[in-house]
Design a protein around this nucleic acid. Sequence first.
DNA 1: CGTGACATTGACTAGTATCAACCAAAGTGG
DNA 2: CCACTTTGGTTGATACTAGTCAATGTCACG
Lengths: 259, 259
Amino acid sequence: MVHLQPRGGPMLINLAGRASADKCTDCGARHIGLCDALSDDDLQLLANAAQRITLPPGQVFVEEGTPALHFYNINFGTVRLFKALPDGRRQITGFMGAGHFLGLKVSGPAAAPGHYVFSAEAIGEVRLCRFTRAGLLPKLTEFPALERKLLDVATHELIIAQDQMLLLGRKTAVERVASFLLAWADRMALFPAGIQEGKLTVELPMNRMDLADYLGVTIETISRALGQLKKSGLVALPHAHEVVLLAPRKLAALAGAES
Amino acid sequence: MVHLQPRGGPMLINLAGRASADKCTDCGARHIGLCDALSDDDLQLLANAAQRITLPPGQVFVEEGTPALHFYNINFGTVRLFKALPDGRRQITGFMGAGHFLGLKVSGPAAAPGHYVFSAEAIGEVRLCRFTRAGLLPKLTEFPALERKLLDVATHELIIAQDQMLLLGRKTAVERVASFLLAWADRMALFPAGIQEGKLTVELPMNRMDLADYLGVTIETISRALGQLKKSGLVALPHAHEVVLLAPRKLAALAGAES
DNA sequence: CGTGACATTGACTAGTATCAACCAAAGTGG
DNA sequence: CCACTTTGGTTGATACTAGTCAATGTCACG
């Protein structure tokens, strides 16, 4: 089960200019994630330390084991985070979208220079803001709201991570896929008030390989699990990257809604 | 594969008196974990909000889904954190020892009242300090060093969690056990300067069932994996709760030292 | 010494991986 | 514009790891 890691070319980054040029206030991610913790004025201060970057599909912009020089804040698109074993086996530890903050996890004490303990790669085109760690870390003391927000973010990620451990350690293939579809729909804010009955279309930016490496199975198993859900009338599959949840509550029951 | 959750009796907690009575400065965990972030004076302030508690083996003191009223700081012993599915399948998400802080992970915004998203149970006798969330949360603003420390703790836990995802999603049974033994030895600070060759004895406070539910396999698989490591001459097993690492580097190679 | 909890070992089974063929959609080039 | 190729996805046959079920072993404790 050796998965070759798809790689973009060398790290040729397209710098779209300093963030202060295009204003944060116009940013699509202005009112989600990290930036929402700051006033427009404080944000402006921070923006002076940021670079706007556009990445092509497949671009690896964080590589496990390399010195951790930057933080990133995603403004558009989706990235996959992953860890790999020497023989090529890969585990995707999460997908990050607009508003997500990235780069907290490095080896050694959090405030000291360290090395990334994961890799990050663009799925489709990605736009993001890049901050130097050296520039941003001192600002944490200056903006307590920012530090608090980071704690909230880290805490939330921990909760997700533990759900994922339950999934990887104890759920069957079909349960994993069902859980994922619901979690993804939830993340896209498609359940404004708890899981509703009634059909619901979910767009999946990632391919089957990503899904497989996120859920700890093979692409064939993903395909078969989706087929089984389709046969059971729980989902429809208009396209490979589009899933219609036909019976979200039944799906949730199948996914093993936690005790 | 239904694992009955071992349960202690009802929540009868033995209160050993307010923490301010016995001093924090005498605490076995004074210079590890959270408390190390504070001066003795600040710690004294905090101690006034704490209760010292002793728990018997098997005592469940945090239950998933119940209102999150407290934080805990472990002073002695080991606890298991876990999530469970309705049919009883259980995933242990971590083991916490002296110095570890507990209770950050609750549903909803981190600073608002929520519900625990995991359960916690004593393995053997446990002594800990209990703080009310209502009492401690405001103090975070008062002691920035404490908040920073919490961020460090959360970040470190995230790194561990991602390693565990790689383990659960992509490693074989033997690799899981080998990885665990090394990680546990490391955590017990038995590798002061990287993984050394030469034998090394590791004490395991948890039983096979805990190991199985942590590593996402069954107790039989744990037993066979340990047997295989023994047959290969990589470990010795003087007692069930004592493992001697005979060749740590070979073990690390087998565990899939990450790329 | 008997009892019970925990651990190990063995025989068999089930779920998922592997290997391989096939299919559909999207480019590509004549 | 249409055959050819490429890429990603699905489906089928078989293999293998780990799960299940059951017996046996070991240790602590009364």
